[in-house]
């Protein structure tokens, strides 16, 4: 286990280092279009080949990983915090608060947020820079993506509220705040952590789909989600292994993060 965790930490550090610093290396320009060598496989000049307009795939992968790695966990964090506020706290409080929270969560799960996203795009100036557009996109994802974890946290918090050890603590005169902070919160952390790790790749993919609405990471800035979207055409048009590079990086990254930071596994 320790070896696995160490390897995972090394992998995560390596990917982070390369994605943060890689774009400083000469030759890793994610914007430049080499129009004489477009849609090509790996070569000496372009180690992972080039995309459909001749941009270096490796440079775009490095830069896209940076964009997604910085923003997707932040969005996942926002959604987890909101899920906690809307789900866990009312679940523990019970009564009317809990019923209202359930109604809000049900609505959050089923309303057509697609249109809200369109409104967000309409309110943004057309000349918003790609970086700001990316930050706004992931923020919106975080603000809208709390429904599922909130429901689970609510159920969990409710069960804890009705559990014997909480009843015992309450009977012993433990304050509500201490009860929640010291006894309930640690029991909610595994669910919150699980949601966080699920949300990161989900938001990376969701960002790519948001480009249909004018949100998402705008050209020429790359993102992991955008590179993954190319997988769809890659399957039918060009079965080139380099198409899967973004997927490989994402899977390795997400798996490594889970192994590195998850404390408890099934024993």
């Amino acid at each position: 286990m320790k070896i696995a965790r160490m390897v995972a930490i090394v992998v995560v550090s390596l990917i982070t280092l390369i994605s943060m610093g890689g774009s400083l290396l000469p030759g890793f320009d994610y914007i430049r279009q080499d129009r004489k060598h477009f849609s090509e496989g790996p070569s000496y000049e372009h180690w992972l080949g080039t995309d459909a307009v001749g941009r270096d795939r490796l440079a775009r992968l490095i830069h896209g990983t940076r964009v997604s790695l910085l923003l997707a966990p932040a969005a996942a964090g926002i959604s987890v915090v909101l899920a906690f506020v809307v789900g866990a706290a009312p679940g523990f409080a019970g009564g009317v608060t809990e019923r209202m929270a359930k109604a809000i969560i049900d609505l959050a799960l089923s309303l057509p947020w697609f249109f809200l996203l369109l409104m967000v795009r309409a309110m943004l100036p057309l000349n918003t820079s790609p970086a700001v557009s990316a930050a706004i996109t992931f923020s919106v994802l975080g603000l809208l993506g709390w429904g599922v974890p909130a429901r689970i946290l609510l159920a969990r918090a409710r069960r804890l509220r009705q559990s014997e050890f909480v009843a015992l603590a309450r009977a012993g005169g433990v304050s509500h705040r201490r009860l929640f902070g010291v006894h309930v919160l640690p029991n909610l952390l595994p669910v919150m952590t699980a949601q966080f790790w699920i949300a990161v790749p989900v938001f990376i993919l969701a960002e790519a789909n948001l480009s249909l609405l004018g949100l998402g990471v705008a050209e020429p800035l790359p993102s992991l989600g955008g590179l993954l979207r190319d997988l769809e055409s890659g399957l039918s048009v060009r079965s080139d292994l380099c198409n899967f590079a973004a997927l490989f990086v994402l899977v390795v990254m997400v798996s490594s993060l889970q192994v590195a930071f998850m404390k408890h596994e099934v024993s």
Partner: peptide
């Protein structure tokens, strides 16, 4: 533990795949 890791990786892989790509596959 290997089974658990495999399942985690498999579900992680599925989370990372766009639905369109899965449907095409």
């Amino acid at each position: 533990a290997p089974l658990e890791k495999t399942c985690t990786t498999a579900s992680g892989l599925l989370l990372c795949l766009p639905a369109g790509a899965v449907a095409l596959l």
